[in-house]
Structures are given as C-alpha cells and as structure tokens.
C-alpha cells in the first residue's frame, strides 16, 4: 500500500476553530487540521468534502484560507440534514475533511486581462478566494469587476468586505437583488443587467461565473453578446457527488466528472451539454 498519500476516501480529523453566522441561513466554518497538516495549499475554486459525524458528507467550496494558521474557511448554507448538522457544530468540535479536490479558477491565465466575476447567491463563496488572489497581485490584472446577485438584501454574503474591495483594490463591485423592500437603496434586478454598468474590455476579459445553472446560462449569453469569447468564460457545474475522486460515477456531466475535471470548466468545453435537459 502506498502510504505516501492518505487514502482519498478516508476523512482526516479537523477541529472547528471558529463558526460564525454570515446571513440568516448561511454560516462559515474555520477548520484547522488536528495533528500535522497534510496539505494546506489549495487553488481558488477547489472544494472539500466535510463529514458531520454520523450524519453524512457534503461537498463545500473553500471560501478562504484560515485567518491564522493552517486550514480553510467554508461558507455553508443550511439547507439539508448534513449542512444542518454542520451548523450545530461549536468551537473545538471535530469533523472529518477530505480534500481539497477539483479544478481551479484561471488566475494565472488571466494575467494581463480584465476580469469579470459574476456570482449568484452562495456562488460568491467559491469565487472569493479567486478575488483574493486577483487582489493579492492587483497590478497583474486590468479592470476587475464583481457582479453579485442574490435573492434578497439579507441573503448577501461578505458585505462588510465590499468597501475594502472597492476602495483598496479598485474592484468595481456591483450588487443587485431579485427583490427588496424600500429599506434597500441598492440595485434591484437580475445580475446580468449589471454587465453594461462596469468597465472592461470584452476582447481582453476573462469571466468567472458561479451560481445557479439558469443564472449562468443567461450570464454567458449576455457576456457573449458583449463580445467576451467563449474560451474566456469559466463556469462551475454542480451534480450529485459521493466520492470526489472519480470512483463513484455520480457527478458525471457528459464526459466530465465534476469532481476531478470540474467544478470549474471553460465554457466552450461544456457548451454542447450546457443547455441540454437531464444530462
């Protein structure tokens, strides 16, 4: 048996360093490895499999590195039995973690280009590390825009960071919600309507999109209409996932395994299946 690499099917114990509420139904978990860290490196866009003891396992994108020390932050929406169990965790509790798995956002490939990031709902979580990476070497990129849509103002994630993204790094942050009451003074409308409102050179732009499939389909249409080429658009796909390493067959999307070939795909490579039903 090859002991140099741990069995990818066996979770490693991680400790909850911190858990906090992001919105009314969404929370973040900062997890640190118990014992020696096996891999602290990750690429923006990758995900971990989080195991709630006795309940089950769920794929969750890494939404940031831990603020202090080894480990990662995961932003999770409480929508099912496993995510609910994860929500019940307290600081110091142990959970199982496998990962990181999957493909990454094209950060290096975007050097010298403008970058348009489009996020819908919880889709901002896997894009946040991409944004961090862009901001970290800000001078390597042209205009950066973040177009972020959510259902309601109270569903918006990471709102306390927007000002620094705007001010310190010159990111054009445009936020919109599907509907709101009068207390909201921001934009109302779908996220695609934000595209004409930011500066970018469509011929030199890399677009990274994460959100519900329908939202991504419209976003791609709109970006292409604006002149962004299919080879420069990246989307994420989601399918049922069990093993995360290509053994279980669940996450197939045509020839691709979402877990190892995705979740980030260049649009032109998944285009033939993108709007086909029941694939």
């Amino acid at each position: 048996m090859n002991f140099s690499e741990p069995d990818p099917m066996v979770p490693q114990p991680y400790k909850v360093r911190q858990i906090w509420q992001e919105t009314h139904d969404t929370f973040s978990l900062d997890l640190e490895p118990k014992g020696p860290s096996l891999h602290s490196e990750f690429a923006p866009g990758q995900f971990n499999m989080l195991y709630a003891f006795g309940v089950g396992e769920v794929p969750i994108s890494i939404s940031a590195c831990s603020k202090n020390g080894d480990g990662w932050i995961h932003t999770i929406r409480d929508v099912g039995t496993v995510t609910h169990a994860l929500h019940q965790l307290r600081e110091g509790d142990t959970i199982g973690l496998r990962g990181p798995f999957g493909s990454a956002w094209p950060i290096d490939e975007s050097k010298g280009s403008d970058v348009v990031i489009m996020a819908g709902g919880i889709g901002l979580a896997p894009l946040r590390p991409a944004l961090y990476a862009l901001m970290e070497s800000r001078k390597n990129f042209g205009d950066i825009a973040l177009l972020y849509g959510a259902r309601k103002p109270e569903d918006l994630l990471y709102t306390d960071e927007f000002e620094s993204w705007r001010g310190k790094y010159g990111v054009q942050v445009r936020v919109t919600v599907d509907n709101a009451d009068r207390t909201w003074s921001g934009n109302v409308g779908v996220v695609t309507t934000m595209i004409p409102r930011v500066n970018f050179d469509p011929l030199q732009t890399v677009a990274m999109i994460c959100g519900p499939e329908i939202m991504m389909r419209y976003a791609v249409l709109e970006l292409r209409q604006n002149g962004v080429s299919e080879e420069n658009i990246y989307v994420t796909m989601e399918r049922n996932m069990k093993c995360a390493v290509g053994f279980c067959g669940h996450c197939q999307f045509g020839p691709a395994f979402i877990c190892k070939d995705g979740p980030v795909f260049r649009y032109d490579r998944v285009k033939p299946l993108f709007s086909l039903r029941e694939v």
Binding site: G54, G56, E57, C243, F247, C248, G249, H250
Partner: peptide
C-alpha cells in the same frame, strides 16, 4: 459498470 454510493450509519 463501477458506480457506487456511500451510506453513513451509526
């Protein structure tokens, strides 16, 4: 055919 699933039990 190789597809599998997992079951968590306590």
């Amino acid at each position: 055919c190789f597809c599998s699933t997992v079951e968590d039990v306590t």
